[in-house]
């Protein structure tokens, strides 16, 4: 059996228990630098309207950012690329930097409520993926979680074909009109309690497509989203971070 002898001479990542070098080697997000001052051209440089002004400083919404890096190239002293892969959040507002309002208290409440719902998911967790109008890249990055590098089975995470057995709905895409009904049917078929994860900037806000005649600006009007994973697409590490956040396996609860 030649394949059996070949095996897998590859190293599975130790993430999240130990940091992964590769995880920090590409552009996972873009953020305003502390002390950055607002300039009127900043709004124009962003293709998705992710950058707005707030008390004389630029504010960046990761939920709209497609990580094109254009703001960094144009205003290198105001924005920087961020390699940290832990980009997911439990509150939509927490994706905005600097924050819209004090999110700490709300975050604590949300986390406690989520913890009650996922309490029974100690060992193994089943995920149902639904594509609600993605560009196809999110599916590659989700599928990568099964490759030997990320190998999420080691964390007790599995994908399931049946919504009845799903603990997590992992939803991608800008909310295409044609998927609204299938999405509703999937939600109705899923046994409560379950957690909804919006995977990717498209799922959060519609991304570059935003709202159009055929897209609903993401899936959050259709579904009560619990975890938000920005990125266009988010990398497998960011998706994994979002899933672990959903399961309360990250004590600190993600980025500010």
């Amino acid at each position: 059996m030649p394949w059996a002898t070949r095996g897998l001479r590859v190293v599975t990542t130790g993430y999240p228990h130990t940091p992964d070098d590769y995880g920090g080697s590409f552009r996972a997000a873009v953020s305003p630098l502390p002390g950055a001052r607002w300039e009127p051209d900043m709004a124009q440089v962003c293709p998705t309207g992710a950058i707005t002004e707030h008390d004389g400083v630029p504010r960046l919404d990761h939920g709209r950012c497609i990580v094109c890096g254009r703001c960094v190239r144009r205003f290198p002293r105001a924005f920087r690329s961020d390699a940290a892969v832990e980009t997911a959040a439990l509150l939509r507002d927490a994706l905005v930097v600097p924050p819209l309002r004090e999110t700490d208290e709300a975050l604590a409440r949300v986390r406690a409520a989520l913890a009650r719902r996922v309490r029974r998911l100690r060992r193994s967790v089943h995920i149902r993926h639904v594509d609600a109008g993605s560009d196809g890249t999110e599916e590659w990055e989700i599928a990568a979680l099964l490759n030997p590098v990320y190998d999420v089975h080691r964390l007790g995470i599995f994908f399931t074909a049946s919504p009845r057995h799903a603990d997590i709905l992992l939803v991608t895409g800008a909310g295409s009109a044609g998927m609204l009904r299938p999405l509703r049917i999937t939600v109705e078929a899923t046994a409560a309690p379950f957690v909804v994860v919006a995977c990717g900037t498209d799922a959060i806000s519609g991304g570059l497509l935003g709202r159009g005649y055929a897209t609903r600006g993401g899936v959050s009007e259709e579904l009560a989203v619990d975890v938000w994973i920005p990125g266009s697409p988010p990398s497998p590490f960011s998706i994994l971070h979002g899933l672990l956040l959903a399961l309360g396996r990250f004590p600190k609860g993600g980025p500010a």
Binding site: S134, G178, L208, L209
Partner: peptide, 10 residues
């Protein structure tokens, strides 16, 4: 058709 996103228009 389910994932028609109106890209040409966009």
């Amino acid at each position: 058709f389910y994932k028609h996103r109106g890209v040409a228009k966009a």
